[in-house]
Computed example of a mutant assay.
Amino acid sequence: MQNLLTLLQTTIDGILIGGVYAVISIGLSLVFGVMHIVNFAHAEFLMIGMFIAWFAWNYAGIDPMLGAFIALAVTFVLGMLMQRTMIKPILHAPQVSQIFLTVGLLFALENGALLLFGADYRSVSTGYQTQALTLLSTEAGRLFVPLDKLYAFLMALLSGGALWYFLSRTRWGRAMRATAQDPMAARLMGIDTDKMYMIAFGLGVGTTAFGGAVILPYITASPTVGSQFVVLMFTAVVLGGLGSVAGAVVGGIMVGLIQSFSALFLPIQLMNLTLFVIFILVLAFRPEGLTARRRA
């Protein structure tokens, strides 16, 4: 019974954290799917979202779950400005130029945050951080859901659902998908592809910042926090298929479960070993992603 409870608890933890991984990875996959550019600075917007939520909590008493919407709005505008001034000029440049630009942007954002905020770690204090919802209680132990992770998961689910509705049910979302499929045909149909690129980049970095804000109750903010998530984000989108929003969701859940079960069976120093091994194997044998259909 105790072993069964341990496995169930590990599964719950993996799904909860995987849901957040999914929403921060959706943005990366959306940007690639629409603009066909890999943004290596994407994880830095998670850091920006965390700091925005921290300042909102520290100076205005706004809970990080609500501060996430402020982070989304601010980074959405910031992302559109960056796309127009930095990303647009290199959209049709060689891939090496795109890589150099986004890697340079990564260092600029990280070091800019170090200059502005220092290297200190910042955390928040909420009433639900130490609370948990008990699902099952027996003599062998109990099955519970930490409220901070549950709220983060539900907020991630909300943002992911809103993005899905936007892409599949709105006129702008359909225009964005048309732009991703065939930019030339989209322009001939009267779609402003430049505007679609701006919105896609803004939404991509905005959803990642949103995800960063909702995990603030259980992860401290620092200028270098993006480096903890960048490999996880790329692993999630590679597992699900780069450019697929639905695949990023599946990949994020998979990453969360792999991490959770690895921590159960391996020493803490090797927690990510299984994840990286799977990442390399997928790149080698299924580079299109586990959820994508093989092309004939």
Rank of each mutant, 00 (worst) to 15 (best):
G206Y: 00
M80E: 14
M1R: 13
G289Q: 09
V103C: 09
L105C: 00
I24G: 07
R286V: 10
V214T: 10
V277A: 05
F201D: 04
N3R: 13
T274R: 06
A43R: 09
T224Y: 12
R171I: 14
S227L: 14
L257V: 10
L91S: 02
G289S: 08
P183Y: 07
K149E: 02
S29R: 13
T11C: 13
F285N: 05
R169A: 07
G79T: 01
F210Y: 13
F234K: 03
L116C: 11
H36L: 10
V255C: 04
Q131Y: 03
S125Q: 15
A213S: 10
L216D: 02
G202T: 03
P64C: 06
L105E: 01
I215L: 10
G19W: 00
T75P: 06
L5P: 04
L216N: 04
L167W: 02
F76Q: 04
V205N: 05
N111H: 07
V250H: 02
G247Q: 03
A246V: 08
L115D: 08
G202P: 01
A186L: 10
T208M: 13
G240T: 01
L273M: 14
I12Y: 07
V34R: 00
A221Y: 11
L7C: 11
A43T: 07
Q98N: 05
S227I: 14
Q269C: 04
L101P: 00
G190M: 11
H42W: 06
L78N: 01
S29W: 07
L216E: 05
Q228L: 13
L78M: 04
G206N: 02
G14W: 02
I253T: 09
S260F: 04
G243W: 09
F265K: 10
A178N: 09
H36C: 08
L150E: 03
F76H: 02
A56W: 03
M155I: 05
P183R: 09
M82Y: 06
V282C: 10
A113K: 00
P223N: 11
F279N: 00
T11E: 15
F100Q: 11
